[in-house]
Simulated assay, not measured.
Amino acid sequence: MKDKLSSTMLNIDNVKVYCEYVCNEKPPVILIHGFVSSTYTFNKIIPLLEKDFSIVAIDLPGFGRSEKSTSFFYSYENYARLVIKIMDYFGMDGVCIVGHSMGGQIALNIAKLIPDKVKKLFLIASSGYLKSSNRLLVYSSYLPFFSLYVKRAINSRSVMDSLRNVFYNQSYITADHIREFERPIKEKNFPKSLIRLLRHREGDLSSYELGKINTPTLLIWGEDDRVVPLRIGKRLVQDLPNAEIITFKETGHLVSEERPNEVSTLISSYSKG
């Protein structure tokens, strides 16, 4: 395979999964995006990581260019098992995993399932300590026309408003950001896949479960994150046995967009330690 960014649509567990990849015989890294996001989250750091890594970036089922499946089981553990199968497809072992926001919880689940195959974890503004959806909401999701309610809720907030919430520096928001974040939510089955995630999400790993994950972990956080505040990172670094945290001032939730050079340098240097 050529040493350049390529893309493919894989069929894993009967769901179509979009991946971008660079295979260059260098140490492997997996990039996992967060909620209502895509591989575009990493568009600024992929070119910077290419010199040190083979890269696979995944659009999780339900998001980005991947299938908005109405049969996939959208739990974090199942997402983790799907990513592991993609690792196997690309022949990746001793992998570093970069997870942003919800992707951080999926990364932690992977390390829990296959600790011997995960070299390092990089948790960028990872979600943490969220409970599973309450029963009333889950039961309501089975009601007729609930998907119309979800669709209305999605459309009630503009993509621009959402982007303003995840950036500290608003001047970084471009037309490309708006296009890339808006396109998936316009797909017909997006509300239905989101409902399934609402039903299946089992909640974040507990302090007890985190305490069993010994994989060396670097947490990377924006001090002005309004989505997953820094206090979550400080709690995670206490619960994970082999973790440290690096923070950036005047930086929001999309750390890799606002601090691409610093983030890529941290990943490259920490992975060699």
Rank of each mutant, 00 (worst) to 15 (best):
V29G: 01
I46P: 00
Y74N: 04
C96T: 12
I55C: 02
L218V: 07
F181E: 04
E244L: 14
E244R: 11
K51C: 04
W221R: 03
Y18M: 06
N14D: 07
A175H: 15
F35S: 05
V150W: 02
R183W: 15
F42P: 00
G128M: 15
S156E: 10
A243S: 10
Y139D: 15
V29W: 01
G94I: 04
G211L: 13
S206F: 13
V166Y: 00
Y149C: 03
I267M: 03
V95R: 02
E20W: 09
K120R: 15
V150H: 02
E258P: 02
R199A: 10
P260S: 07
I46G: 01
L130V: 10
F90G: 06
N14K: 12
N242Y: 11
D88E: 14
L148I: 11
I124D: 01
P28W: 04
L219N: 01
W221N: 01
E67C: 02
F146C: 03
E202H: 07
T265R: 12
T215R: 04
S256P: 01
S147P: 13
M92A: 04
K117A: 10
L163T: 12
G94R: 06
H200W: 13
G64T: 13
D88M: 13
V150E: 02
N165S: 12
S147V: 08
T8G: 05
L121S: 06
S140L: 13
S7M: 14
A125L: 08
M92Y: 12
G252M: 09
R81W: 06
H253S: 09
L143K: 10
L123P: 01
I246A: 09
K186G: 14
K26L: 06
I114E: 01
M9Y: 05
L198C: 07
A175S: 15
A57D: 06
M160N: 11
K131W: 06
F167W: 05
K272C: 11
A175V: 15
L10Y: 03
S171D: 12
I84E: 00
H177N: 01
D13S: 15
V237S: 09
I154D: 00
N14E: 08
G222V: 08
E262T: 03
P241Q: 09
D239T: 15
A111Y: 05
L121Q: 00
I267W: 02
V95E: 00
I97F: 05
F181A: 07
R231I: 15
D161T: 11
L148N: 15
I46T: 06
S126C: 11
I30V: 10
N134R: 10
L5Y: 04
A243L: 11
A175Q: 15
D3P: 08
F53N: 12
P47K: 01
T174R: 00
F181T: 07
L60M: 07
D116T: 08
E209M: 14
L197S: 04
V150R: 01
S54A: 11
V237Y: 05
G104C: 03
F63T: 03
L163F: 06
K4D: 13
S54P: 07
M9R: 05
S271I: 06
G91I: 11
D59T: 02
P260Y: 10
K51T: 03
P28K: 05
K85V: 08
S256I: 00
